[in-house]
Structures are given as C-alpha cells and as structure tokens.
Design a protein around this nucleic acid. Structure first.
Lengths: 149, 149
DNA sequence: CAAATATAATTGATATATCAATTAAAAATA
DNA sequence: TATTTTTAATTGATATATCAATTATATTTG
C-alpha cells in the first residue's frame, strides 16, 4: 500500500504537492492584488530585503535562470512595480528599484504570503518541518551533484 | 540555523528540489532520446499501462489540466508517438494509441527513468522515503482543502 | 421528447522554463 | 596595453501552466 501513485515514487507526491501549493498561493494572492503573480511577489520581497541585488542575484535567490528573470522583471517594470537604472560602476548590471506601487503592494501582500505558508504547513510539528526540509535537501543534493557532472 | 533560505520556509526547499529533479531527469532523458520531454514520457507510460484512458484521465494522472494535456498530446501526435482516434461510444473523447515509435521509445527510456528516481532518492532509507511521502501528503492535503473551498 | 445542464476537448491570452546564441562590458592574462 | 576569457543581461525558439471562453456531444430533468 505504500506506492499507489502512477510511477510508484515519492517524486510524484513532490510534484503534486508543489503544484497544489502554487495554485493555492496564487489564488489567495490574486484575491488581494489582481495583476501580480507569486513569482513577481517573490521578486519584490527579495529586492525589498536586498536592494542592491542584480537580476542575476535575484534569479539565484528564487531558482530562476537569467532568461526567466529578465522576462519577469520586464513585466514588473511595465506594470510599474520596479524600475531599472543602469549600475554606476558595472554597466552590464542594473540597479533594480522598487516603486511606490511596489512598496504598497508588498505591504498589502505580506500577511497573505505568510498565511499561505503557515496554512500549507498546518498540522506539521516543528520537528516534522525540520525533518521534511532535511529529507528534501538530501534529494536536492542528489539531483544537483548528479546533473552537474 | 533551520531556515537559511530567502523566505524562511521548507516550501522553498520543496520548490528548489522539484526543479533540480526535473532538470536532472530531462538531461538524462535527452541524452538518450532527443525529441521528447519528461512530461511526454510520463504520458507514454500512463497510456502504456492504461490504454483506455481519455485525455482527461491522463491529465489527472500527471496533474495537468485539460489545456496542457491537449497541447502535450498535439505535439506527441505531430512527432508520431501517439495517434488519436475518435472514441466509438462517446464522441467527445479520443482513443489515444501509442505508435510503434512510441513503444520503442518507452522501452528505450524506462531504465533511465527508473535510474533517475533511484538516483534522486539515493541515501534515503525505506523509512525515510515513506516518511517524506507522508509529510508531503500532509502539505498537499492542506493546500487542496484550502483552495477548494 | 425538449430544454437545461454537465462533460471532454480545444483555443486564445498571458506567464514562466529551458536551451542556445548573442551583445556589451568587465576582468584576466599574455 | 592588446587579446582573451568571463560575466550580466537579452533574445529567439519551443514547451508547459493557468484561466476563461468556446464547441461539440452526452446526460439529466422538467
């Protein structure tokens, strides 16, 4: 009875879980702010905490590649959440500045974002959360070392 | 020291882990068969085990929505992995048949797919895998019940 | 049976993911 | 310093995700 899912592995549950979490989180966020995605929220939060980050650094923080982050930030600039200014000392980079609208949006959404996380983890003890993180990290490292060689 | 990741939750590790797994799996699969994606492989496997499944049933099995599965199968039909025939008794549905090329591809890829999974879970005991699955399922159910209401 | 409702699949619009190629600028090195 | 190599960001191509609207067909119900 352990493996009833199609491919017989926990990796299926992993896939399904993150998908449901994303759906749930997006639904809650959309109900407060209509023109923002979960990923765009994360970019705002990262930049809020680390105003000096380049696109590349933001990308690494949320596991996106450079191409994805370019497009995500393009959209955020269009929607006036962020502005791009050329970096003073390294002209390959940008300074990314959160706009007033961006700041207001963060304030509006932070409670929701935090609630999404606690809701997702409801019923798990502190120990279980730590354990989950450890087990996931093992899998993560396996995959990383595997495809980096 | 528990949470060093940007948003301070295990959900980040979850996101990162599934992304690395997908990358690793795609890389290994691409090295054997060049014109197929991980998701397309899954469709082949599902149909192989359940030849009578409709698109909708395949979709549910791998957590895709109808729109996604329509497009995935479109591509697979174009690449001659699958053929669509109208269902005899319910003309809203299709019978999806794996082609000869599809069957050969499955045979070629199954060892790789299985190796990907065991590699990803290397170093985890049976108990740990069961535990991981249980913890993930708790999160999954939290998210589902949350956004289904 | 006819009308209303439900279901399977498709399509359009928009966002993200991935890979490869490109550009511009910075850093390293001969 | 001139040349080579790296790095940051962009762009193009293709695949997938999500939502909403639509089409065609089945099923239910009045």
């Amino acid at each position: 009875m352990k493996n009833t899912n199609p491919t017989g592995t926990v990796l299926y549950t992993l896939e399904q879980t993150i998908k449901e979490y994303r759906k749930m989180a997006q639904k809650k966020i959309s109900s407060i702010v209509h023109d923002i995605t979960v990923d765009q929220c994360l970019v705002l939060i990262i930049l809020h905490k680390n105003p000096q980050y380049s696109q590349k650094e933001v990308a690494e923080m949320i596991f996106k590649d450079n191409a994805s982050i370019t497009r995500i930030i393009d959209l955020m600039v269009k929607k006036d959440y962020i502005s791009r200014k050329i970096h003073e000392t390294d002209r390959r980079k940008f300074n990314l500045e959160i706009t007033q609208k961006g700041i207001e949006t963060i304030a509006l959404l932070i409670p929701t974002i935090q609630k999404n996380r606690t809701d997702a983890l409801a019923g798990l003890s502190e120990n279980e959360i730590v354990l989950l993180d450890q087990l996931l990290t093992k899998v993560l490292i396996n995959c990383k070392t595997d495809h980096e060689k």
